[in-house]
Design a binder for these strands. Sequence first.
DNA 1: CGACTTTTTGATCCGATTCAATACGCGTGG
DNA 2: CCACGCGTATTGAATCGGATCAAAAAGTCG
Lengths: 256, 256
Amino acid sequence: MSNREHDKIVNLSKLKAACEDCGMYGLCLPIGIHEKDMARLEKIIKRKQPLKKGEHLFNQGDAFHSLYAIKSGSVKIYSIADDGSEQITGFLLPGELAGMDAINTGQHNSYAKALETTSFCEMPFAQLEELAGQLPSLQHQLLRLMSKEIVKEGEMLMQLGKKTAEERLASMLLSFSTRFKERGFSPTEFNLSMSRNDIGNYLGLVVETVSRLFTRFQEQGLIYVKGKYIRLIDMQALGKLAGLNTADNNSNPKTA
Amino acid sequence: MSNREHDKIVNLSKLKAACEDCGMYGLCLPIGIHEKDMARLEKIIKRKQPLKKGEHLFNQGDAFHSLYAIKSGSVKIYSIADDGSEQITGFLLPGELAGMDAINTGQHNSYAKALETTSFCEMPFAQLEELAGQLPSLQHQLLRLMSKEIVKEGEMLMQLGKKTAEERLASMLLSFSTRFKERGFSPTEFNLSMSRNDIGNYLGLVVETVSRLFTRFQEQGLIYVKGKYIRLIDMQALGKLAGLNTADNNSNPKTA
DNA sequence: CGACTTTTTGATCCGATTCAATACGCGTGG
DNA sequence: CCACGCGTATTGAATCGGATCAAAAAGTCG
């Protein structure tokens, strides 16, 4: 796509396709990296065999070696507490990074499971870190992505802390809508690759509640649902549901 | 305390006390930084006037310039949603860092308010980043702390997603206990600097529920409470409450 | 097709919220 | 120093949203 002159090595292998050829180029780690530096980044990125549905990218307890970038498909991130209970902490779409929570301890403390056939890149962290020391833009991008992750989780805390079941599901639908749009997919029509149970787990609700909400939203003409297929019909109403419902819960504006 | 020879500048000012003299040295950013590099790190760290109770370290919407390390006191991190509702996402104790969520957008999307008289250091991020490019150990430590933040929030998600009111409060008490201990304070006896309302907001509960729980825990002989003063009496029982109560909620172990 | 899993729908129950009122803590000023 | 006032905390009673229990319906896959 763009002109790279001084590289004989980069394209020597079919397996090692360039980031620039990846549909998620504009969303992934390479953002803001100078073209001349990209070759160095690409050299440490490993193309991997796609995962089949149900396979794991990594397991809780695994030693941490690499970050992973999702290229296509989707991944569910979850952990299992001592008592055996599962908590889903996120769903990854193409262009998003997995494994950052493991940097701290050097051990993955979550599972990453493919919800469908999923292709990804592996980026050995030691090499990434070394390179980041040499490329300020890469270092910055790495910090930025981690910061983004922190913000994302903070927003999720807001969800779980204050919102009703209805608000949570509406928010989630809109969040997926936005993310699909960023990735060039339709913002109003998509398949949710995870089960109703997963949705409930993620949102802090039981599966029956999620099911009832989908039904209700459909009855109210907000969405059309057919299994995993979702069409958002009344985005505005969904936004209103997601955002400004209980405009009080512990809000306590004066303490601000 | 330790021997530094080659520095005339570092100690020239009383204000600019060394990190090594800070009680939180072992918990803060400097972990793992070589002694010879510390001088460079210290040079960019600004000592600031302590905040009085109620004053803000930064406000939501502020341009992001610096990370802040808490030296003493405590801080509440919260954001205000469009609808005016407040959500507390965390409380910071000495040795902990604030502002990492702003790296992504270059804008703080939370407030940081002192819950009591609080002293802190300011670390201009641009300089920190530049230095991190030169000191691998600093870069690593920075990434590690951000990773830790992600993990911490992930654990909080687990709390809010699945746990009962009782479990949440027990967890919070134990979390503070651990953190106080790490900082050299008593793990069984401390003052919670935040209001009951703040605790409730943080845990996704209303203030009445929090109050009732404190009363109940005390009746059950788990703790002694007197206003902000807390003494943990039966840590084991608290741990049991916090951890292994509802060992089922959406656990669905087979999907693991 | 037939077994199994996932989803939906219905009826009931319970934990936490809400509403309401009292008690406590604390700073201010007389 | 105590009285007053106001914010914070506690306690009580009623209500409700979402969980739980139960069962049928719809997908999924070998």
